[in-house]
Simulated scan of single mutants.
Amino acid sequence: MRRTPSARRVAPHPGTPPPGEGLIVGAVPRGARITGVLLVLAALAGAAAPFPTYLVVGGEELSSANGLGSALIALLVPAVHLAVGVVLLRGAVPKFGLAYAGVTGTLGVGLLMIELYRGSSSTARPGIEVLAGERVLTSGVEAGPGWVLGVVALALTVLAGVAAIASWGRTVMVDGGALDPVRSGLAGAAVLLGVATVLALSLPAADVPDRLVTDPTTGLQTVVTQEGPQALLERPGLALMGGLLLAGAVVLCSVVAPSLRPRLAAVGGLLAVAVTVLVAALTGLRDAAASDELEWTVPGAGLLVTGLGYAVLTALAWRLRRGRS
């Protein structure tokens, strides 16, 4: 008697999800969870960094958290790192966390180089700088524990980005293509925001205003330009290289983030850019509000606008969760 072969159960192919959100998540590789661990460690180091002494400049101890507002700004990035790191450790939506880690790690390379310059090389060419909301002359700088913790947090963020990029191809997570009809619009808006962000970053967000001087003899008024903080691309050496890398990374990530698949990966990439730009803008606003010598500049206001623009794009990508029927 001839035996009928038993029917085999065939799993659906991960590349053809059902219509709608149709989210399919495969096995989460070890590298994705390692990325989550690195993000959590970066969050812990970053959360501790604002409170000890940041730098000692000319005998004056500077701290990044001088009040409730500055503390909240300093804790924004660690809070997001921690939340995304926990999501990666759970393995629920891995490409969301990997996209966030990859983009924030890419942006972190330039930030790390700038921070290394501030704490170790800024005395090679002394100049007026704004550090932790204070206008100081960097003729003598000593690194404090807060600076060390900040550098460790940035280094862990960069390592998390490397681990995320290495794990991306081995992570299976697809959806029904809900974001596909509007990806080109998101990408165009993100590129415009990226260019505007670079232009805003090229000048200080908080600067020293010009002083109006009246000659007591003639009564003539003269505008005297005061030396202000160094712009992003005016710093020498390591800081200049970091500024160029940061500017290039902002534009590159603005192009790449909206094109990431699935939809939640694009949300993660845009979230990383939004948080980075918003923190830079809010830091400039804090410096201007905390110091009588500084005032908020047009580039600083522009940086805040672009940061809010990235936040709007992130929210739009998040809300478009219903696919085509």
Rank of each mutant, 00 (worst) to 15 (best):
P14E: 11
E21R: 13
A27M: 04
T35E: 03
V40Y: 04
L44R: 01
T53M: 09
L55P: 05
L62P: 05
L72F: 11
V77R: 14
V77P: 00
H81Q: 15
V86P: 03
V86S: 02
V87K: 01
L89P: 08
P94Y: 09
K95D: 11
L98V: 12
T104L: 15
L107I: 06
G108I: 08
G108H: 04
V109W: 07
R118Y: 11
S122G: 09
A124D: 15
E129F: 12
E134T: 15
G146D: 01
G146Y: 00
L149F: 13
L154Y: 13
L159W: 03
A160G: 14
A160H: 07
A163G: 07
I165S: 13
S167C: 11
G169C: 02
A178Y: 05
L179F: 02
S184N: 08
G185L: 11
L186I: 04
L186K: 01
G194H: 01
G194P: 06
A196W: 06
A205G: 15
D210H: 11
L212N: 04
T222S: 14
V224M: 14
T225G: 08
R235M: 13
R235P: 02
G242V: 08
L245G: 13
A249P: 07
V250E: 08
S254C: 10
A257V: 03
V273Q: 02
T276S: 13
V277S: 03
V279A: 07
T283C: 00
S291E: 09
D292M: 04
L294F: 04
P299Y: 01
P299I: 06
V305Y: 00
T314K: 00
T314L: 02
A317D: 00
A317C: 11
R319S: 13
